[in-house]
Simulated scan of single mutants.
Amino acid sequence: MALSMYELTVPVFVRGLKVLSALLKKAEAHVEQHGSVPDALISARLADDMLPLSAQVQRASDTSKMSVERLSGVAAPKFEDNETSFDQLQERIANTIAYLESVTAAQLDGNEDRAINLNFGGFPAFTGQSYLLTFALPNFFFHVTTAHDILRNQGVAIGKRDYLGYV
């Protein structure tokens, strides 16, 4: 049985965003338990030339919603990238999930050969399938993984099971 474009997008992105939400809840609990400043964790980076935690969440959100928009033609909501609190990051994740879950299988399936052209980065033209498998999914998981790693690096008690979402 072949996997559909819907099965490879919406459920995968929603699951990853729910994992990211759970990671942020653990980060918020860590801040409360240790009396830390939330801003310090939300602005933490793995390296000076990398984006902070807040931007990792924003990029995971953007990658998932814009990928589904490009593949389905259903307009995604626009967000300002101005989240500075755990509550705001959670709201962004929830709004992204709501959009993703509003897109139906009928709107995504059959778009494997759809032409996808990105207007940044000098990437070649993609088909829907090549875009999803070689750009969208790897990019999404890069940002979820980086958010996990920032939190882990900052002392939040999370591990591989938290990333996999089976906790």
Rank of each mutant, 00 (worst) to 15 (best):
P11H: 05
V12Y: 02
V12W: 01
K18L: 15
K18V: 08
K18M: 14
V19M: 01
L20K: 14
L20P: 09
L20N: 11
A22V: 10
L23M: 13
L24I: 08
L24V: 11
K26G: 07
A27R: 12
A27W: 05
E28F: 05
A29M: 13
A29K: 07
H30G: 02
V31K: 13
V37F: 10
D39L: 03
A40E: 11
L46K: 05
L46N: 09
A47P: 08
D49A: 15
M50Q: 01
L51A: 05
P52S: 12
L53T: 13
S54R: 14
S54G: 09
A55R: 12
Q58Y: 04
Q58W: 01
R59D: 06
R59Q: 10
S61Y: 00
T63Q: 00
M66F: 00
V68L: 04
R70G: 01
L71Y: 04
L71W: 06
L71D: 05
S72W: 03
G73Y: 04
A75N: 11
A76N: 07
E80I: 05
D81Q: 07
N82S: 14
T84C: 01
T84I: 09
L89N: 08
I93N: 02
I93T: 03
I93C: 07
S102T: 10
T104V: 14
L108H: 04
L108A: 10
N111E: 03
A115T: 15
N117L: 13
N119Y: 15
F120G: 01
G121T: 11
G121N: 08
G122T: 09
G122E: 14
F123D: 04
T127D: 05
G128L: 14
Y131A: 02
L132Y: 02
A136F: 02
A136N: 05
L137F: 13
N139R: 08
N139W: 10
F140N: 01
F140L: 04
F141Y: 14
H143G: 04
V144T: 09
